[in-house]
Amino acid sequence: MKKMLNPITLSLKIFKTTVICGVVLSLLGCVSATVQQVRERSTQISGGETLVILGKRNRPSTEETEIDFIDCVATNLRAKKSKLKVLNEQRFVDRTFPWFEPRTAPGNMDALVNLLDQKLLAERLEQMGLKYLIWIEGQTKRTSSGGSMSCGITPGGGGCFGFLTWENDASYEATIWDAKNKTVAGKVSSDAAGTSYMPALILPIPLVARVQSNACFGLADQLDTFFTN
């Protein structure tokens, strides 16, 4: 005769199954990504030369690229086989202060050419071996959300019940400036969209679509290809 499970054991089994399903679903992800590239000039980077990835934070624009996205692209680009030398963004901005602050940063190639008339700045960039400046603009935004969830807490315990869903859209564009030849080398864009879910049966289980990470990995891969091919 089949053994009956007591309610606590049954609840635990349901909980375990839900968690395992959740992990599997989150690993599968629910993200669609697109990467595009426009090349205007051939690119070449030698051993001693470096590049820097900067978030576009010019005034009076109200948009700012997330700092962790810039870090993510730089870290992934450093980790590629081509071993590109990517400078740390904050260290670069500090070493070239005050020329890359939000109020003073060059907004286009002509402004950079004018900026390089500053002898001290030009010398500093030469010392740093800077060949390419990559400006990243864009953001990850929540485009829609739905569902409901209610949570309660009592002396006897607590829990949540419901279902939430939301959709995020990441759209980033990297503009590559050749600081030595004073030309625009090209553009790379990365877009990703995905839906996240959070079912709750006592405990809420977030199944998050990694939209921003996907956009970051896509952009880093394409930038690596841009410089090595």
């Binding site: 202060f97 005050p98 602050e101 109020r103 003073t104």
Partner: peptide
Amino acid sequence: LSACRDVMAVFSI
């Protein structure tokens, strides 16, 4: 901090 850096940038330039 960003505002403090901004005043430094304007002053020095």
